[in-house]
């Protein structure tokens, strides 16, 4: 399949977005968004992880390989980590990872990271809306993908 053919968007296509959410902040934020009956796109699949630094860069490659269109890693704000320093490592790791993916031809918008605290339900919803919109604009991801 050529790149041009790959770019064609099937009808009724909806993106699949995987969000790695830290148990202590972002997952609580998502919970609060739910309690407040906030609406965010159902394209987002939340995966709870103990800490944002639990997310191995291999998970992201794996997600793209298995057909996810966008990945978000979300954790506590720097300084608020439940494990004191986890998110500082996350920050270093994914600043590098994002550039590395870009170097390999994957749009940096497809892999993002955000800090969302347990009280920021609104920010959680806004992030998800924005991410979903961006991915919709980009179309389905065919890069690094196992199944075409």
């Amino acid at each position: 399949m050529s790149l041009e053919e790959q770019k064609q968007v099937p009808e009724n296509w909806e993106p699949t977005i995987l969000a790695f959410c830290c148990n202590w902040c972002t997952y609580a934020g998502a919970d609060l968004a739910g309690l407040n009956r906030m609406k965010y796109p159902e394209n987002v699949r939340i995966l709870r992880v103990p800490c944002s630094s639990r997310v191995n860069p291999q998970f992201i490659l794996r997600a793209f390989q298995k057909g996810v269109d966008g990945v978000l890693v979300a954790g506590c704000h720097p300084g608020d980590c439940h494990y004191v320093s986890g998110n500082y490592f996350t920050r270093r790791r994914f600043l590098l990872m994002q550039r590395f993916l870009e170097y390999n031809g994957i749009d940096p918008r497809r892999f993002q990271a955000r800090w969302i605290s347990g009280a920021e339900a609104g920010k959680f919803r806004d992030t998800m809306l924005q991410l979903c919109e961006e991915i919709k604009e980009l179309g389905p991801n065919r890069k690094l993908r196992e199944v075409k």
């Binding site: 500082y88 490592f89 600043l95 590098l96 800090w115």
Partner: peptide
């Protein structure tokens, strides 16, 4: 090695 440690003033892009 830089990925095994961190500094508080590392670049911030995820706010």
């Amino acid at each position: 090695p830089p990925l095994g440690e961190y500094r508080l003033e590392d670049p911030e892009e995820y706010m």
